[in-house]
């Protein structure tokens, strides 16, 4: 397990920064994000609408908390769960042959493909390490 505090701080900046950026871009265009959720064709329209209002704020709040070092275990855990869910969602979409934008970064979103899973996988690894390292620190 990585213990180096500088490496962990670097991970916090990267993961937290990515989620702050992603959250802000979605907050300024909630309808665009709602449509991105709907495009996955897994959720009813009403659910896509309300998820689009809440998810960006979870991302933003957890990103800020992670960088500030407040609730570090919880924010890292929530972001790890998010990333895991994104990876599963993208994978399902690829298997279903959907040619859609991921909706991850508002209008800067890219098409759903395997490289996106790789990027999310790296972020998932970082946030999981952050979660586990903060658990160990408390022992």
């Amino acid at each position: 397990m990585i213990r180096n505090k500088y490496v962990l701080y670097f991970f916090r900046i990267i993961v937290g920064g990515v989620f702050i950026w992603a959250g802000v871009l979605k907050i300024i265009d909630p309808l665009g994000f709602a449509q991105s959720i709907a495009n996955y064709r897994l959720f009813p329209a009403w659910m896509a609408f309300f998820l689009a209002l809440v998810i960006p704020w979870i991302e933003l709040i957890c990103g800020v908390l992670l960088i500030l070092g407040l609730f570090p275990r919880t924010s890292a855990l929530v972001l790890s769960l998010f990333l895991f869910a994104f990876i599963v969602l993208i994978w399902i979409s690829i298997l279903r042959g959907l040619d859609i934008d991921c909706g991850c970064f508002g209008s800067f979103s890219r098409r759903v493909d395997y490289t996106l899973i790789l990027v999310d996988g790296i972020l998932f690894g970082m946030s999981t390490i952050l979660f586990l390292s903060s658990v160990r620190k408390k022992v």
Partner: peptide, 27 residues
């Protein structure tokens, strides 16, 4: 997140309950 998300988009939520966005979400 729910509180901030809902309170920051009250006009959108009003429009939703008035029947908009049931068929798609156009920004």
């Amino acid at each position: 997140s729910v509180l901030v998300g809902f309170s920051s988009h009250i006009p959108l939520i009003k429009r939703y309950f008035q029947g908009e966005f049931r068929h798609g979400f156009v920004s």
